[in-house]
Every structure is written in C-alpha cells, then in structure tokens.
C-alpha cells in the first residue's frame, strides 16, 4: 500500500472525521442499555473509504480511529467493542461492494447489521455469557435505520466531485 501525499492527507482527515463521529454519537444515549454499543455513525467514513480508496485504506483508517478513540476514552473494554464492530462492518461491506448488485444503501445496512453483531460478540466475550444475545434482535432492527441513514450520507459524499478528485 503506497500513499500519495494527497491520499495520506485524505486518510488522516477521514480518520479524524471518524473519530469525531464516534465522539458525537457517544453523547447520545445508546440505542439499548448495553454499555459501549454505538449507532455506528463512523461507518460512513468506513464505507466512503472502502469505495473511494479501497479496503486496505479503509482498514488503516478504522484501526487508527479505534485505537485513538480508546485512548481518548481511556476505556479498554470500549476498544473491543469498536474493534469487533468496526471490523465486522468493514468485512461485510467489502464483500457486499464486491457483489456489485447492491446500492450504497444495501451495503451500508449490511455493514450496520454486522457492526451490531460485532458489538454483541464483544459483549459476549467480555461478560463470558450469552446474555447480550437478547439485545441483538432490537439492535438489528435499529441497524436497518442507521444503515439507511449512513448509506444516504455516504452516497452524498461519494457523489461529491471534490472528494472524488482527491481520492483518485
């Protein structure tokens, strides 16, 4: 993976944007009383980076966001949440983009659902209990809406000619 200066700058900007989004959504109440569970607004950045720059770049941005986010929050268990959630979302979205049939909405909703599954998996690992699975149905229903929202925003970003030029 070789960065041009332009791409490096864009990656840094996107990582900062993802971090800001994670922080902003931390100020809203979680969709369910499961601590650490986030709506997944930062998936906007992941999906944009995935489409505009490619999977390796999206992964790099994701890891920077997750690590910096955990450092700022000073919370190690939050690290596992955002890491598993983010990786699951990225993995599923990378597959769905390759399927070439879906619009940005379908990819985004699939990513949002995977994001919630990843977070519940993190809770299961942390607690050593399957009890968090009980939250999954509601989280999946929520993910259809958050996925549609992040899909809409990502679509607008991808349609932005300025960003497109920088990415290429």
């Amino acid at each position: 993976m070789r960065f041009t200066t332009k791409q490096l700058t864009l990656c840094a900007l996107l990582a900062a944007l993802a971090l800001a989004l994670s922080y902003v959504e931390g100020m809203f109440p979680a969709p369910l009383p499961l601590p650490g569970v986030k709506l997944g607004l930062a998936n906007i950045v992941t999906l944009f980076a995935l489409c505009a720059l490619g999977a390796p770049y999206a992964l790099a941005i994701l890891l920077v966001r997750v690590l910096l986010g955990a450092m700022f929050a000073g919370n190690a268990s939050a690290l596992l949440y955002s890491l598993l959630g983010g990786l699951a979302a990225l993995g599923v979205m990378a597959l769905l983009v390759r399927a070439k049939r879906l619009s940005v909405y379908g990819v985004s909703i699939g990513g949002a659902a995977a994001h919630q599954c990843g977070q519940v998996a993190a809770a299961i690992v942390t607690l050593g209990s399957l009890a968090p699975l009980a939250y999954l149905p509601a989280l999946l229903v929520v993910s259809v809406f958050t996925g549609a929202l992040t899909g809409f925003v990502t679509g607008m970003l991808l349609g932005n000619r300025f960003l497109k030029n920088v990415a290429e």
Partner: peptide, 10 residues
C-alpha cells in the same frame, strides 16, 4: 462506486 439509488437487492 456503488449506485446511489436503492434497488430490490437492497
């Protein structure tokens, strides 16, 4: 770039 209009696969 994926399509920006939702379709039936979505």
């Amino acid at each position: 770039f994926p399509e920006q209009k939702p379709n039936r696969y979505d």
